[in-house]
Amino acid sequence: MTILAFDTATDVATVAVVRDGEVLAERRSRAIRILHEIESALAEAGVERGAVERLAVGTGPGSYTGLRMGLITARTLAFALGVPAAGVSTLDALAAGSPGATPVIDARRGEIFTLQDGQPSVLAPEDLPVVPGSLYVGDGAVRYRGVLEDRGGTVPGEESEAHVPWARHHAALAADFGSAERLEPLYLRVPDAEVAVQEGRLRI
């Protein structure tokens, strides 16, 4: 089984070509270059695009724009190549790369995305229950290192690979392959304008 996996939800986008559990190629880049990296990774792996059998894509949470670029690429690839796809949470992929660690993604606006009781959630870094001595990974952990370390948490160095949601983990975690149309992004927040309407602040 040859799986093409990628994730563009965070500032570091990743791509992996995995066959029967063996990582044939893996790259990191930025969301806008994802297709270029897919092309390069397939070439490096010696896999023709027509030989890709499954897609695994990161569903976030993360940057809304980056997330959408990955999902539209997955949906379009699934359509053009006629292959099934599966979504994998970017938080789950990060956690898979550092067993025992808590994944923390920068949600901007002073907030973080993390897993709480296994569920993706958005909260202020100060509200994360930090367990002294435990490990925190992801670009959110790097950004709020002070907040986490002040309360006894451990955050690997900025250059650590533990902060990257490597796409090999998406390939490993992917299950329930099917139509790419049902893959939904994990935004975890409604648009500001919707909040304004609901709170009656927006007058039309």
Binding site: I72, T76, P191, A193, I204
Partner: peptide
């Protein structure tokens, strides 16, 4: 319902509509 185009709302909808429209 917003009285004008909301960029984030538009982007979210494009993601849902592109493949069906093509």
């Amino acid at each position: 319902r917003y009285g004008g185009v909301v960029p984030e709302v538009a982007s979210r909808r494009h993601l849902e509509l592109v493949a069906p429209v093509v």
